[in-house]
Design a protein around this nucleic acid. Structure first.
Lengths: 172, 172
DNA sequence: ACTGAAAGCTGTCGCGT
DNA sequence: ACGCGACAGCTTTCAGT
């Protein structure tokens, strides 16, 4: 993961591709006033540098029968130091867990979970989450409605390198 | 958003496309033992039915200088019924807010937020979140480490329609 | 560092089965 | 419902400026 200078063209590409991963190089070129071949090269650079980590089709959970989203705040038992790793491995392997972060505050972990319905979620909680290694306490917040959900990262904060002045070669 | 019967081929396509949105129809066809043209038709059907809602490039937040992820649990003031809509509109307009759900439990809303660093996050909290219309209380959980983060929905639960028996036509 | 053309792939549609 | 074949459009590379 090397450092890589990202100019305003790259930022424009990233912004566009976040929103539509199928935008063609020709379209991107029009927007940025660059040729399609340049777009191709820049994208490859961003992929190689792992700034772009992949491409995905986004699916509608409701259309696929996933009606329930919930957050779980988990507290682990304190008296065993090997437990966090086991817990993390177990959680990572659960496909219903879309997010899991170790956090500050009262809980140790915060997870986002999806399930077909409340019955399935309840079973998931009782039979799987509560039995994970080291889990002492679980507090759940069930989603009542989705206000916003996006994968689009804000890019406004990224420092724009000044337009490159050609470097003078000494004794060139 | 009409009902649509999703067979095991569709599920296979969706599973593959969730993980790699740039998989070619030829590759998908090989995996599913179907021709590329069939894949094309099925994907178009899934797009039209809004099962596939879009395609996206996935970016690495750290590579783009977004070092901080945090969750915020928000309690609104109780004495004004027009507030939730205003709050939701304001939150939706904030690019740093990647998720916002209304939830059961002690808090009214649970948000996921990203920021370049703790200083920027702190400013975001103090100057923007706390001043949103109707906000009474905010509890934050700052992420210490990412255990898992995915957009890949579990599809195992989807009922597989039995292999279609050819319907007998009466007086055919 | 970029453009433009050329070659190879990919998506899509009509048609036959 | 599906596969095949053809065509249009896209991506990528390479020579040139």
């Amino acid at each position: 993961m090397s450092e890589l200078s990202i100019d305003r063209y790259d930022l424009q590409l990233l912004a566009a591709l976040q929103r539509n991963g199928h935008t063609t190089n020709a379209e991107l070129g029009e927007q940025a006033s660059l040729s399609a071949s340049q777009i191709s090269r820049r994208i490859q650079r961003l992929e190689d540098a792992q700034v772009i980590t992949g491409y995905a089709a986004l699916l509608d959970p409701h259309a696929l029968g996933l009606g329930v989203t919930a957050y779980a705040q988990i507290v682990l038992e304190r008296h065993d130091k090997t437990r966090p790793a086991e817990f993390e491995r177990a959680v990572t392997a659960m496909p219903e867990v879309l997010e899991c972060f170790a956090v500050t505050g009262e809980a140790d972990y915060l997870l986002r979970i999806v399930a077909p319905d409340l019955a399935a979620f309840s079973e998931l909680m009782m039979k799987r989450l509560l039995n994970l290694p080291g889990v002492a306490q679980v507090k759940t917040n069930i989603a009542l409605s989705k206000v916003k959900e996006t994968h689009v990262l804000p890019l406004d904060h990224v420092a724009q390198p000044r337009p490159q002045k050609r470097r003078v070669k000494y004794a060139g």
